[in-house]
Design a binder for these strands. Sequence first.
DNA 1: AGCTGATCATAT
DNA 2: ATATGATCAGCT
Length: 229
Amino acid sequence: MAGARPSAPASESELLARAQGLAGRTLGRIAAEAGLEAPADQKRMKGWVGEIIEWCLGADAAALPEPDFRAIGVELKTLPVNSLGRPAESTYVCVVPLTGELGEWKRSNVYRKLARVLWVPVEADRGLPLRHRRIGNAFLWSPDVDEEQALRTDWEELTEMIARDGLDRVSARHGRCLQIRPKAAHARVLTRHASPDGASIQTNPRGFYLRAKFTGEILAALHAGGVRP
DNA sequence: AGCTGATCATAT
DNA sequence: ATATGATCAGCT
């Protein structure tokens, strides 16, 4: 790498200022500053956008089950947006725990991951090469009361459904803002899961995802001048 | 066009 | 295999 990785930000305002400093720049440009080149094969480097932004901002918890910015407890999420500025994809949150207790909402990984998020919109039209994609205006977010209620309701319903009917009865069609979808290298990857009757079975790992409709509403509230906590 | 199920890269 | 980072691809 040509450039040195920035140190971790010491505060939310420092992180936000850094992230907003990326607005309008292309991924090719910030990659060059890190001594990298944007991959030509964007179909294979699915996580590259998130990783380069993490690098630029000094995230220090990569590949750990913790917030990206450990000291200040902030999670970084890039938000792929189309030419209209609307989210083009769902947002992965975390894996669905398949063993152990159900727990309660406020102790769930979903709640903890989403408690404080730095959203970084990035252009993501499929025909646009990675190096030409521009970064948008980053913003800090926590769920407001309505959003948290909606997330909590989905989480509790999905969790109860798994316990009552089994994971294999839960599809991506369930959940208004939070959904469950496969999360693995491929469909043959299996992990252990306790079925409702107590038997241990093998199943494809799943993840919690935010629907694009939900993240789109977060963006819309911003543009409407909504005040956020 | 939107959505669901499947998939790709990397680190531990 | 499990977790991180996500987007792809095909069907409705």
